[in-house]
Amino acid sequence: MLSYILKRIFSAIPVLLGVTLIVYFIISLIPGDPATAILGSFATPENVKILNSQLGLDKPIWQRYFIWLYNILQGDFGRSFSLNRPVIDEILERFNATIILSGTSFVICSILGILFGILSAAYQYSFIDKLITFIVLVGISIPSFFLGMMLILYFAVSVRWFPVSGMYSLYGGGGLWDLINHLVMPSITLSLVALGVIARLVRSSMLEVLRLDYIKTARAKGVKETRVILSHALRSAIITILPILGLQAGFVLSGSVYIEIVFQWPGIGRMLVDAILTRDIMLVQGGVLFIALCYVLFNILVDILQLWLDPRLLRK
């Protein structure tokens, strides 16, 4: 068990390195000379050269990559020129907001997606199945940012159940209840797409499992049908569902960029879009890298969970 987990963690190292390589590669494609950009176009060639060597830019590219990587490992993601502060400080400050939003949405879409999928499979071709299929279709077809805007229009402006935007109220806010109140609409919007994908998959894998021999055995034993579905079939279906849940975490993190913009949520996604518009490359690089690393780590956790759920993986 432990050796499997260690093996899984080690096997992630090339992927993690690959992620850093790609981010570094993409960013190094940017035309122009950073030293000139920093010093301005009136800088003397001598000053540019001095700054270049200070920044280590006169070294060959692979050497620069390792210096960069070394700095990243130290937690040094560079400095944002538009905010004039270290990138990592800005990221950590906003990370909370992103995790609260994405995490809540991920939990919602996993639970509801699995529930919808089970209902859909258990009551195949019934009204509830058709209703869920319809919700799934809407979920994967509607632009999340549009849905978010419509929710604001109705629930925040017309009936005033929830606040329009932000994470906390400007005056007198800050408590947990305030946060939840602000979280409802963005997290529902964000979870809808992934919910559709998960529900679809749960439905099809449940139907697949329900045809297997051991389901017939369970029925022949006299096990109640609810238990056949919730214990026997779901137990097997969850094994195919789990890796997809890992992938959906990526969809949720991706979608959070739009949702953070629509609901003015102070997270990393919004920071990234602002950074791109102000061409603050260090900030973009740091943000993308940070989220990608979190996502890879999350998928390692999913794999370990998978191991715990499927003892057959340990055979050999």
């Binding site: 090339p14 992927v15 690959g18 992620v19 390589l21 790609i22 981010v23 993409i26 960013i27 494609l29 940017i30 975490a249 990526g250 969809f251 993190l253 991706s254 979608g255 960029v257 739009y258 990234l272 879009v273 950074a275 791109i276 518009l277 061409r279 490359i281 973009v284 690089q285 943000g287 993308v288 989220i291 990608a292 996502y295 890879v296 998928n299």
Partner: peptide
Amino acid sequence: MRTIDVLMSFPYVLLALAIVAVLGP
């Protein structure tokens, strides 16, 4: 395939954002 694995380990919008950041909007 290894390159593709690595590309797939990005949440897709982030990769798109990084590319747009480099190429310009």
